[in-house]
């Protein structure tokens, strides 16, 4: 029993890291604009699907296909900002309208993917095809190490970007006071496009890392987006590190619910965590950013 619990906590951490990456994507756009981007799930789905397409249709090796997919998804993030968000923004639309528009964009991308690629689920090969490592009797598969390692690198990279680069600081300035940032000569709208690119790229990375352990299809985006969204709320909305911790918490809770209560309780666990935080600690683990 102990082994089973420990093993499922481990796999919960892996899935939770993915939720965390998606949650960070929510935070980056929210901080830059105040918008909750519900098209976040589309980026996750496109990451896996495009990598698969790159490997099967173009015969690319996995690393190239993955990098290509991340780049294309990041560009589609910019496209979302330019085509959907910017026109509404310039017209002075309410936040609610812009959030609904991102939800509409999610549906459009999902349906277009269905038309282009059909509804069959696909998967990616594991990145390192070796038998699981045995550590103290636990099986640790390599994909878990890839997920945790890549997440750690991405988060460290983001932290460095926001704390040490001029562009990162300028993005933070835009989220603190957009007008004051513009008065310093900071191109505010370009920073917003960059936030969408970053966030989309994060979603793609999450989608690529998780696909070998599950599958991907046109409709996997929404469930991932919901989990990432819950992770972001649990972490304190707008707090990237909090979102990551929230993701891990969520992943572990789901894994334990599956072990003790059965697979049907996976979503119950997620919503229970959400409600628990909304009632007991609405500002999340780290306190919300705004």
């Amino acid at each position: 029993m102990f082994d089973l619990v420990a093993q499922s906590i481990l796999s919960g951490i892996g899935v939770g890291a993915i939720y965390g990456l998606i949650g960070i994507g929510f935070c980056v756009i929210y901080n830059a604009s105040g918008i909750v981007n519900f098209a976040q799930g589309a980026f996750v789905m496109l990451g896996g699907m495009l990598t698969h397409a790159g490997m099967t249709k173009l015969g690319l090796p996995l690393p190239l296909a993955a990098i290509g997919a991340i780049a294309i998804v990041a560009l589609s993030g910019v496209a979302l900002e330019r085509i959907v968000v910017r026109p509404l923004w310039n017209r002075g639309s309410t936040m609610f309208v812009m959030i609904l528009a991102t939800l509409a964009a999610q549906i459009v991308v999902e349906r277009l993917t269905l038309i282009a690629a059909g509804d069959q689920p696909r998967t990616l090969p594991v990145f390192t095809d070796l038998p699981p490592l045995r550590v103290f009797g636990f099986a640790i598969n390599f994909q878990f190490l890839w997920i945790v390692g890549c997440s750690a690198i991405v988060i460290a990279g983001l932290a460095l970007f926001f704390s040490s680069t001029k562009t990162g600081k300028a993005m933070r300035a835009c989220s603190i006071n957009r007008d004051a940032a513009a008065l310093q000569g900071i191109p505010v709208s370009r920073m917003l496009a960059l936030a969408f690119a970053l966030s989309a790229g994060l979603g793609a990375v999450a989608g690529i890392l998780i696909t070998p352990t599950q599958y991907t299809a046109f409709n996997v985006g929404v469930p991932f987006a919901i989990s990432g969204f819950i992770a972001a709320i649990v972490g304190g909305f707008g707090r990237p590190l909090g979102a990551f911790m929230g993701g891990i918490l969520l992943g572990v809770a789901q894994a334990l619910a599956i072990v003790f209560l059965g697979a049907a309780f996976k979503n119950v666990a997620a919503l229970s965590i959400l409600l628990l935080f909304l009632f007991v600690r609405p500002t999340g683990l780290l306190g919300s950013a705004k």
């Binding site: 600081k169 933070r172 300035a173 603190i176 006071n177 007008d179 004051a180 940032a181 008065l183």
Partner: peptide, 13 residues
């Protein structure tokens, strides 16, 4: 360059 009313400094930075 404008120093706006209320200063507009980036307080958390």
């Amino acid at each position: 360059v404008l120093v706006p009313e209320g200063r507009g400094i980036f307080a958390p930075m």
